[in-house]
Amino acid sequence: MSAKKKINAKSIAKQKRNGRKLLAFIRVVRYGAESFMRNSWLSVAATIVMTITLLIISVSFAMQNILTDTINELHNKVEMSIYLKTETTDEIGLELSTELNQLSSVKSVTFINAAQAKTKFAKDNSDNFDALNALKEATNRNPATLRIVVKDIDDISQLQKFVSDDELLKKHINPNFEPSFAGIRRDTIKTIGRAVNFAQNAGIIAGTIFVIISSLIIFNTIRMAIYNRKEEIQMMKLIGADRLFIRGPFLIEAMIYGFVAAFMATGLGLWILYSLAKTLLSYQFIAQPTINLATNYPVFVLMGMIAVGFLIGIVSSLLATRRYLKM
């Protein structure tokens, strides 16, 4: 009987403890929300800074995405060509394509036979009357071509080795046309490769610097906001507030900055992206996939922004309140 009573007492005590914890949590949330509303100027200033921070982060992310898509597209456009004799059959072309596809450095291979090459030439020069006439009179001397997209345009050694060593290719290679990765063309391709790498690295570094600077700004804004209220914190400590009651409302307040700022930054970010889309496209930037991503999944974008806003707010206020927690 007494054991049963003890168990009941324990469970009641536990329920009471949990009830008190819940009550304390609700009060902390209420204090944070009230403080956000009542310190209106400070809240507006901090929310604007947070919005700018999130905007910089999202724009950096979008630009990095656009740059990566553009670079990938550029990579795909940089084709290397191996010219074969005019009479090379489709079977031989396909066999060579299969061999090339097995190389780890090769992304894709397309075989164009001499007839297809002639058709393409005619199409490309449809407004050049002399060229079309010459094409009609002459027998087809266009070389068959293997068009190769490599994974890394800076690394073509494997391809070069294939050209110099493969017996089948040696039999069918056109002696009048050198492969396009040799000589001056190779240097051009290498220059494109270096420019592409530079642009990508510069984008990552610039994005990282922007994110760090903007995070420092919001951290300092929150720190200043908390510093302004250090006497209030001191008083709270003296009347017996524990760490939860001192730190909690500031955390909630900073999370509210992040929440409101996420909505504003998402709206502004999408507007900027739409506004810049035409300009970016005119400069051959591939912006459409990024715009599609933002348009198709706006809720995920918003949730991502809220998560980042919460994270920055929580980390900033945790660091800023740390010095005031010494009892």
Binding site: K237, L238, I239, G240, A241, D242, M327
Partner: peptide, 13 residues
């Protein structure tokens, strides 16, 4: 240290 808030609740200032 974690009992200091409890002490302060017993003292009015």
């Amino acid at each position: 240290d974690n009992n200091i808030p409890m002490l302060r609740r017993k003292i009015g200032v």
